[in-house]
Amino acid sequence: MNHPKSTITIHDIAAAAEVSISTVSLVLRDSPLVAKKTREKILAVIENLGYVYNRSAASMRSQRSGVIAMSINDLANPYFSGLTSSMERALNELDRTVLLSDVREDVVRQTRFIEKMREHNVDGLLICPAHATDAKQLMTQLKRANLPCVLVSRNLPGSGLDYAGYDHRAGMRLAVEHLIELGHTRIALLGGSRKTWVGGQRLEGYRQALKKHGIKRDATLEIEGPLNRSVGVNMIEHALALPNPPTAAACANDAIAFGVMLGLRRHGLEAGRDFSITGNDDVAECTLWEPALTTVASNVDLIGERAAELLLARIDNPDQPAQHINLPLHLVVRGSTCPPLK
Rank of each mutant, 00 (worst) to 15 (best):
I42M: 09
F80Q: 05
R109F: 13
P4R: 10
P243A: 04
V108W: 11
S336D: 04
A132K: 13
V19M: 05
C286T: 08
L179T: 09
R64Y: 03
L138G: 04
Y206E: 02
Q110K: 10
V27Y: 01
P243N: 07
W289S: 06
S71H: 11
E105V: 05
A249P: 02
L126N: 05
V34S: 05
D123I: 07
G335I: 14
L240M: 07
S81I: 04
N77P: 07
L293E: 04
S336Y: 09
G268D: 00
K342L: 11
V103F: 06
I315Y: 01
D12Q: 01
G160K: 04
N92Y: 15
I10A: 11
R154H: 10
Y163V: 01
G272C: 14
L147F: 05
V67R: 12
Q323H: 03
L240T: 02
R217M: 14
G124K: 08
L221R: 02
R173D: 12
I215Q: 00
L227N: 12
D12L: 11
D106G: 09
I277S: 06
L288H: 11
T7W: 07
H330E: 15
A76P: 11
A90S: 03
L227T: 12
A239W: 00
R265P: 09
L174F: 04
K211R: 15
N48Y: 04
S22G: 14
L288G: 07
R89V: 05
L240D: 00
T247Q: 01
A313D: 13
T295M: 08
H330C: 06
G279H: 04
S276H: 02
L179H: 07
A284W: 03
D274K: 12
P157A: 01
I325K: 00
A175I: 04
S85F: 12
A257C: 08
T278G: 02
E88H: 11
A69F: 10
N244A: 10
H324T: 14
A249T: 02
L138M: 07
P226R: 06
A76E: 08
K211W: 05
S298Q: 15
L264S: 05
L99N: 03
C128L: 12
M172A: 03
W289V: 11
V176E: 00
R265F: 09
L174I: 01
A15Y: 01
P148G: 06
P321V: 13
P243L: 05
E105A: 02
T185R: 11
D162V: 04
R217C: 15
S86F: 03
L156Q: 01
C251P: 03
A239N: 01
E309K: 08
G165A: 03
